[in-house]
Amino acid sequence: MFNGDIFTFLKPKNELESQPAKKGSEENRPYIPDAMWVKCPGCKDMILAADMEENNRVCVKCGHHFRLSANKRIELLADIGTFEEMDADLQSKNVIDFPEYTRKLKSAQIQSGESESVKTGVCKIGGIKTVICVMDPTFMMGSMGSVTGEKITRAFEYATRNALPIIACTVSGGARMQEGILSLMQMAKTSGAVKKHSDAGLLYITVLTDPTTGGVTASFAMEGDIIISEPNALIAFAGPRVIEQTIRQKLPKNFQTAEFLLEKGFIDMVVQRSDLKETLYKLLKLHMFEGEVLPV
């Protein structure tokens, strides 16, 4: 065909021409390892990772709060050497034989270095003994499976038996669908344990961190006597993408942020990470029983 033949007249590219063009400045740039810098989603600036880590994973320029692992948060809140973990040996099983779940659990364990999406235990904050549940964003996005629910429930039961306050730091994509209905049942199970703790006249503080959504928002995260959130955290029942798909509308800019929830009356306060321990300490102290003394 004539059409085909026309291309045979085109000059073939030589070796130099066929290489992608190099940007002029690239070669003169100093070599910087990628891991040293991170782009801050808040101010979009490149910041030194070491500075950010040093600052409890808060951007030194704009104050954006990066996600914190369970271990780091415990380090931030608990008095040094006081955290004693509970139920560390509990491990999830693939009860409903969900495809790929066993493998996913393994890789989550390797990736996060945790056995599950929540770490529970007792610790002291400013010398005051409290139970604490801290979720981990690196373990399957903090999703709530049966063991997550079990550990939280046991932590509440322990707090109720020992007349202790409890703090829950949440970060979660919601119920873990790989466990089917059993993950949904954890919402009821944990809420029942919260209720018993509450009926015993004990204090429960929740610290919501980015993101707290779905089944965790619709259960123990929203059941605290006092609800604190970190700045700009996404707090939602249905995530923004689901809502946009449902209503086919762009959402307002600060929609479902901690500040938005504060304005709408669903949380008590927004607290900077640097002030979190002090705030928790003051609240715990204010709720101490009559005659209870701070250990020296």
């Binding site: 619709a218 995260a221 929203m222 249905a238 449902t246």
Partner: peptide, 15 residues
């Protein structure tokens, strides 16, 4: 799942 539902605390109401 909608704006009003979230504004009025869907998660809190269910919880």
């Amino acid at each position: 799942c909608g704006i009003g539902a979230e504004e009025r605390g869907q998660g809190q109401a269910i919880a």
